[in-house]
């Protein structure tokens, strides 16, 4: 009788530990940043901009945000599409409307705390129908000391600003 109670206790402790381990894996502390994308006064169609997380080796980790609602044009963002389409990433929940020249868009980006100050970057690549494609229009280091600084874009993006949420 005592033995069985002990067994039961052990089982429940293990169960709780396993559950906790799982929940920690799922709920690793996250930080979110507000990110402002300001476009230049270029001429042409609305721009497609995709925001991705890049690891210290320069490889894509995941897509953070897609500014563009028509999948027809995604392949134009060649480098990112190769990655995202390659891993069959589900990006439905993180897509928003395109914006035109001179406009701005504010989005919220979330990162795991481990990705901050560890050499990760946030990349903004952009394309406009029948115009040049920018593999790196702007890129921001996930460095808590410098992240609030305005970063100028090279293509359709005038600048990017990020602040902790």
């Amino acid at each position: 009788m005592r033995k069985s109670v002990l067994n039961l206790c052990l089982v429940s402790v293990f169960t709780v530990q396993i559950l906790m381990a799982y929940s920690f894996a799922n709920f690793e502390p996250q930080v979110s940043y507000k990110c402002l994308i300001q476009m230049t006064n270029y001429t042409g169609e609305k721009a497609y901009v995709v925001v991705s997380l890049i690891d210290p080796d320069g490889k894509y980790v995941k897509t953070l945000y897609v500014q563009g609602d028509d999948k027809e044009w995604f392949p134009d963002l060649r480098s990112w599409w190769k990655f995202s389409d390659g891993i069959n990433e589900n990006i439905d929940a993180i897509t928003g409307a395109t914006i035109g020249n001179g406009q701005r868009n504010i989005v919220s980006l979330s990162f795991d705390t481990s990705q901050i100050d560890s050499g990760h970057k946030v990349r903004f690549e952009s394309a406009v129908e029948n115009q040049e494609y920018y593999k790196i229009d702007a890129e921001i280091e996930l460095n808590s000391a410098t992240i609030k600084e305005k970063v100028e874009g090279k293509g359709y993006i005038r600048y990017i600003r990020m602040v902790p949420n």
């Binding site: 979110s32 507000k34 945000y65 504010i106 989005v107 919220s108 979330s110 949420n165």
Partner: peptide
């Protein structure tokens, strides 16, 4: 509205 709820943009 566009708001941030739990770190995510929602409209």
């Amino acid at each position: 509205v566009t708001v941030i709820i739990d770190g995510k943009n929602e409209s």
